Amino acid sequence: MKMKTYRIRKPKIVVIGGGTGLPVILSSLRNQSADITAVVTVADDGGSSGELRNSVDMAPPGDLRNVLAALSDMPKLYEDLFQYRFKKEDKFLANHTIGNLIIAALSEMRGSTYEAIQLLSHMMHVDGHVYPSSESPLILHAEFEDGTKAVGESKIALDRKTIKRVFVTGKQKAHEVHAARKVVQSIQDADMVVLGPGSLFTSILPNLVINEIGEAVKNTKAEVVYICNIMTQKGETEHFSDADHVRVLHKHLEEKFVNTVLVNTEKVCEGYMDPSIYDEYLVQVTHDFNGLREEGCRVISTDFLKLRDGGVFHDGDKVVDELFRIVFGAKL
């Protein structure tokens, strides 16, 4: 385990997103002396999370569970138990994780997923703050360039159409969409706001299109950093360059708000990825550095690559080292 670094002044870093990319960065951030806040999407409607959000009327727990585990210092056995997923042959419990069920139970006990996450953060000795982006489950909608629409995060990539825009609504049509408590203030008080890594349309944007969060990110004095995905994603960012990712972010918020983009330039060996496990990823994102500069972004390009288990990931330690060079290069 990497030795934790201590500093007199802890930079306030807010990380916004969801999916598998967010915990990678948070795990490495936890080894640094930072005041960490994770803002996590609540638009997931697939798998165990989708079943529980429909059964218990709660925010989907999966991404929140992974973030709690990434920021917790609990013993490895406890973490393994929290993350344990029942086998698909187990009928009633099939594919549910222990952590998801614990979050569901606490959500029902407290009448609030937000309160459940705060209680679990204390119980699990989480180093930082974990907030759902909204205190109610949200429904993600997509409009495609051909004029058709899709409803539900798990449905958006199925037809592999070009996405024009995404937006969120409350689970109940009459419910207005608001940011969860402390989210906006955390963004306003931050030294740095980090977006990603994660699925552009289904992990990052579902947070930013909540109006209060989008406005906070645009208006914060913090450095806004986008960690660009290494691979394109089937049905979301096929044929995308790194500049295309940023253009989509700016188009959705109607303003050029990203200050710095981290781009991986290391090549993935052909045939390395295991398609039976990572079938949603296609090819590496192409580079358009002039396009990024036209979007008003500083570009930091280097080797951020980590290959493991037949998959392509960001090297969390390399990314976090760069984030700290950026944040300490600015006035804290």
Rank of each mutant, 00 (worst) to 15 (best):
Y6S: 11
R7G: 07
R7C: 07
R9V: 11
P11V: 08
L22I: 05
V24N: 07
V24I: 15
Q32R: 15
I36Q: 00
V39M: 12
T41H: 11
D57S: 14
M58W: 02
G62A: 11
L64A: 11
N66A: 13
V67P: 01
L68P: 06
A69D: 01
S72H: 07
L77T: 06
E79L: 05
L93V: 13
N100P: 09
E108H: 10
M109T: 08
M109G: 00
S112Y: 11
T113A: 05
S121G: 15
V130M: 12
V130R: 11
A142L: 03
V151S: 09
G152R: 02
G152K: 01
E153M: 02
I163K: 02
A174N: 07
H175R: 08
V184Y: 02
Q185R: 12
Q185S: 14
I187R: 00
G196K: 02
L200T: 05
E212G: 06
V217R: 12
T220H: 04
E223S: 13
V224T: 12
I227W: 02
T232R: 09
A243P: 02
H245C: 12
H245F: 13
K251P: 00
V263Y: 05
E270V: 10
P275G: 11
Y278S: 07
Y278D: 08
Y281H: 07
L282P: 03
V285W: 01
H287R: 15
G291C: 12
R298K: 13
F304C: 06
F313Q: 03
H314R: 10
D315Q: 03
D317C: 00
L323H: 06
